[in-house]
Design a protein around this nucleic acid. Structure first.
Lengths: 225, 225
DNA sequence: AGCTTTCGCTACGACTCGTAGCGTAACTGG
DNA sequence: CCAGTTACGCTACGAGTCGTAGCGAAAGCT
């Protein structure tokens, strides 16, 4: 689940918590799925206590009750490990319940996303891995498939619902529709992240309302154009 | 150790590129202003070559032709040093020329900001220090005063101009006006950063136009409300 | 002059990194 | 049941970084 697959380096699995058949019947001792869980849990715990900067893989291994070598057999380094560790949180937390209107849907997802960014694990980890990804294309791909693309689906789903309700026009040109979805995604996710982590001020109901109003008015007015 | 507290240690200045009078007439050998310049230049160069993760202070000192100890006498650690190094770039690059209309002003600042984020120094450094700042209040303050607050001024200036032109209403309630400015700031800066660094796609003229249209329509429609 | 502060240099213990080598454990197919 | 294969825990290692201490010399001020 976590990974875009990786051809096959020395580190075979990299991340394959299911631990089993890629091509049929693997032989030999299987990887402990429990070790995977323990490592990812330990990673999140260490992020909470130490933050990104002081997190060391030796420490994570010790917390997980696992040898350091085991950890290196599965993940190439800190970056990859942390991406997988926080990606799981995104999967758990990010859904888009139908709240009946475009405004309510956006407000809802903004608050959910903000709550996720309040957690100390994600707070310190997300920006850090993005920073590292600026010099590491493989990491960028991993972040994209493990985190970003899944968030983007929420935008697509929300738009579809809004169109079904008649709140947004159906766009005829698929290219421009894709561009608009990307734009909206960057606006929503960017604004929330910036508010929460850069401005370091709370994303509360009031802020979410103001932001959503701005966005919905803009969409209603700018899209049909 | 890196950063958090520094009641009043051996590290006097922390960051005082002017290097002179804090309390009147300092005695003794003054700090070399040229060394400051050399260190910050070396920091930016090292960021370009190595990125945040592999940047080491020993390396920076060597590049700058300065003893490692000198570096530690002025900055508490990597975080503070890099903030100062990139803050200078923001000062150089971020202005707001009057382009005649609110739309043009926003498009202009978006493209300028994007160009700044394209540079490898800022790309890798900005997210990293923000990530560290989530666990270090002093660093957060430093980022705020060295970078964030200055960007925010552009929003205030832009709004004032737009109001003078009659493009935006003058807001009566100063509290709500401040909230709106903060909101607009997070939307603009957040969207650009997210597009450039997370989505990792180009902030070109086309994107800037689409974003600006969305924002201006939203502002025109939502603000008088 | 004398006082004060900074500078370059060297050296240091503590720590993290990522890997190698070994013997053992777990699972599979003949 | 046994041979083959893979994962595991453990130990040990060289390399690199961190941040500090201690020294003598340099550069200002009064």
């Amino acid at each position: 689940m976590t990974s875009a697959d990786r051809p096959d380096g020395p580190r075979t699995g990299g991340s394959r918590p299911d631990g089993s058949r890629p091509g049929g019947g693997r032989t030999g001792r299987p990887r402990s799925a429990e070790a995977d869980r323990a490592i990812l849990d330990a990673t999140r715990a260490a992020l909470v206590e130490l933050g990104w900067g002081k997190l060391s893989l030796g420490d994570v291994a010790a917390r997980a009750g696992v040898a350091k070598t085991t950890l290196y057999r599965r993940w190439a380094g800190k970056n990859e490990l942390v991406v997988d560790a926080v990606a799981a949180l995104f999967d758990e937390q990010l859904h888009l319940p139908d709240l009946g209107s475009l405004t309510a849907d956006i407000e809802g997802v903004v608050l959910r996303f903000a709550a996720l960014l309040e957690r100390p694990e994600t707070k310190t980890a997300l920006m850090a891995v993005v920073a590292e990804s600026t010099r590491d294309e493989a990491l960028r791909d991993r972040i994209r498939s493990a985190i970003v693309d899944r968030q983007k689906r929420l935008v697509l789903l929300g738009r579809e619902r809004a169109q079904a309700r008649g709140e947004l026009p159906r766009e005829s040109d698929p290219e421009s529709a894709a561009r608009n979805a990307d734009l909206i995604f960057d606006v929503i996710a960017g604004a929330v992240v910036h508010r929460a982590l850069v401005s370091a001020e709370p994303v509360d109901g009031e802020w979410a309302r103001g932001f959503t109003t701005l966005l919905v008015v803009g969409l209603a007015g700018a899209l049909p154009d």
